[in-house]
């Protein structure tokens, strides 16, 4: 496994004398640090209209991830996970890892800005937009479950994500939802 190195020591520079927070990301030279709860409150306030905000944030994260992949059109799972996780972490959005449950591909988002159900739609749109931008495949995402400060999102087709979202709304666990999905698939 080859991990791409990225200079993290100067990724975030806090200049208290000027009140500037500089991000040494490939695409962002300056950032405004706000509390994570403010993002969660903004998302909750937007509701169904939080899509453009998620798309805007996902574009910035995907741009950083692609820059870390150095133009690799077909990266390995490890490289892709490293790039996406680092792009999220540089903005204080937490980190992530990928997993497989059978053929179902999942993304575990650790330490997201919020794990509340009002944040699930925004998280799904953000992750789907980032993965679609990195891989070039139209991908949908749905929160299959959450435990503490961790969100488990299923990456797949729109019908499958709709299936998972309905099951999750009933309070079914992520493993049970994915098992049901795999047992009920007609692929």
């Amino acid at each position: 496994m080859a991990l791409r190195t990225h200079p993290l020591e100067k990724a975030v520079t806090v200049d208290l004398s000027t009140g500037r927070l500089a991000l040494a990301t490939p695409t962002v030279s300056r950032a405004v640090a706000v509390p994570a709860e403010w993002l969660a409150q903004a998302v909750a306030a937007l509701g169904a209209n939080a899509g453009p905000l998620a798309a805007s944030l996902a574009a910035a994260v995907a741009a950083d991830a692609r820059a870390m992949l150095a133009g690799d059109a077909d990266p390995s799972p490890e490289a892709c996970a490293s790039a996406v996780a680092l792009a999220l972490a540089q903005r204080g959005l937490g980190t992530c890892s990928f997993g497989r449950f059978g053929d179902a591909l999942t993304l575990t988002w650790s330490a997201p800005p919020s794990a509340e159900p009002a944040f699930h739609a925004f998280a799904s749109d953000l992750v789907a937009a980032v993965v679609s931008a990195v891989t070039g495949l139209a991908t949908h995402a749905a929160v299959a479950g959450h435990a503490g400060d961790t969100l488990t999102l299923f990456l797949g087709s729109e019908p499958a994500c709709t299936f998972v979202r309905e099951r999750a709304a009933r309070g079914e666990g992520s493993a049970s939802i994915l098992a049901t999905l795999l047992g009920a698939t007609s692929a």
Binding site: S157, L181, S186
Partner: peptide, 11 residues
């Protein structure tokens, strides 16, 4: 891997 996951369709 993502393509295999995208191929999943619920009955």
């Amino acid at each position: 891997l993502l393509e295999r996951s995208l191929a999943l369709r619920p009955r």
